[in-house]
Lab assay of single mutants.
Amino acid sequence: LQLFIKTLTGKTSTVEMEPSDTIENLKAKIQDKEGIPPDQQRLIFAGKQLEDGRTLSDYNIQKESTLHLVL
């Protein structure tokens, strides 16, 4: 599924993920695209901070969801 990652600067990146992927996997993919180390990334979806060990489906993240990346 395609996700949009929006940064505080207003920049939006697109990443392709599976519902079974963990937040950790997602942060690794963001690191590949943006060069931001996972330990500096905080991802927010629906007002919640996402935890590394959980999966996208745990948070009911659907295709074309927008996640907010806070550093």
Rank of each mutant, 00 (worst) to 15 (best):
D21N: 06
S65E: 07
D52E: 09
L50C: 02
L1W: 10
K33H: 08
F45D: 00
I30K: 00
D39N: 12
T55D: 02
R54F: 13
A28G: 08
T22N: 04
L67D: 00
I36T: 06
F4N: 07
A28W: 12
L71D: 06
I5H: 00
E64S: 12
G53E: 09
L8D: 11
D39E: 13
Q40F: 10
L71G: 07
E64A: 12
T14H: 08
V70M: 12
N60L: 07
K63T: 15
G47R: 04
V70K: 07
K11A: 10
M17L: 07
D39A: 12
T66V: 14
G35P: 02
S20C: 07
V70N: 05
T55A: 07
L71I: 14
S57C: 04
E51Y: 07
Q31A: 14
D32T: 11
T66A: 05
L71C: 06
E34M: 15
Q31F: 15
P19W: 10
S13K: 07
S13W: 15
Q41N: 02
G47D: 06
E24I: 11
K29T: 06
L69W: 02
G53H: 14
G47H: 05
I36S: 03
Q49L: 15
I61L: 07
T7E: 06
T22H: 04
E34Q: 11
L1M: 13
S13M: 15
I23M: 03
S20H: 13
P38A: 15
Y59Q: 03
T66G: 03
I23N: 00
T22S: 08
E34F: 15
A28F: 12
T14S: 10
E34T: 15
T22I: 04
S65I: 05
I44E: 07
V70Q: 08
S65R: 03
K48Q: 14
D52S: 07
Q31D: 04
Q2R: 15
V70G: 05
E24S: 13
G47Q: 04
S57P: 02
E16W: 15
E64L: 13
E34A: 09
L67E: 01
I44Y: 15
G10R: 04
E16P: 05
I44T: 08
D21V: 03
E16G: 07
A28E: 09
E64M: 13
Y59C: 01
L71N: 07
L56M: 06
N60Y: 06
F45P: 00
A28P: 00
G53Y: 10
I36C: 04
T55I: 08
E16F: 15
M17I: 11
D58E: 11
S65M: 09
Q31T: 09
I36L: 06
V15L: 11
R54V: 05
N60D: 08
T55G: 03
S20I: 05
K33P: 02
F4G: 02
L26C: 01
L8T: 13
K33I: 15
S65F: 07
L71H: 07
Y59P: 00
D58W: 13
I23A: 02
Y59K: 00
